[in-house]
Amino acid sequence: MPWRDRSGRFSPFKATVFLALFLPALWIAYGYLSGTIGALRLMESLRDIGNWGLRLLLISLAVTPLRKSLQWPQLIQVRRMIGVAAFAYIATHFLLYVIDQSFDIGKVASEILLRIYLTIGFVALLGLSALAATSTDAMLRRLGGRRWQRLHRIVYGIALLGIIHFFMQTKADVTEPTVMAGLFGWLMGYRLLVWLRSDGARPSPLAVAGLSIAAAVATGAGEALYFWLKTGVDPLRVLALDFSLQLGLRPVWWVLLIGLAVALAAVIRSIGAAGRRDARRRKLGVEAPSA
């Protein structure tokens, strides 16, 4: 049961996350039923549920970085749950597409073959299905930890395909997929930082801050390059717009602020952890090393 921990006890943390994973779907369902989602309810729901599926997939990829940097080992308990939820959202996204095509399976199949962004999305869904199917404890045991992990590493590729699919289906305003691409870069960069360390330990908050700046710069530069190639607009003018804030928070800032928030949380957490260590030592009658 998703609300029990390994020892079978009720876990308020797991239960809370489990319930929270339903909230976006409930919100979309409410919008659909009340009509507030927009005049074409099915089209809007289809888009929103896919969008949330991709967000959940990125959140599942954020579990490891947060677990390490925030020294929060319990977070691993909810990773699988988030991944399975991402699959459920994206499978529903596909189901709504089939409904939108009036259950004309021939049309659905031909569209998937003809439109490259649908091909990409469908491949991502197939990959995600394989991960969902092997997400049970029984399957994990059957595959063995190492093989299971190797298989589940394809989630990086799946997330990338999902973001490309999102980019390609967007008509003109690529703000959201750009933010996602920047955050995906950050998540992969974090893993690179871990891999670069010989001890495989968590990167320092300073390194995380550096990564966040790098990911934000790459986001801004990539965006400017994209618009330059697509429309010929001067990349410097696009970059200048990032600083004017007249269009609200641009993707650069989203990526930077989210990244820096993790670095800051890591610092706070380290201070807290050091304080707790000292307190424990004092309790045990051991002198703090600095004293």
Binding site: R41, K107, M168
Partner: peptide
């Protein structure tokens, strides 16, 4: 004649929500 990214064979109507 399809749009490069989708078929134009059918359309979804506002209000009736039918294709």
């Amino acid at each position: 004649v399809p749009h490069p990214r989708w078929s134009q064979a059918t359309e979804r109507q506002l209000t009736t929500d039918e294709r």
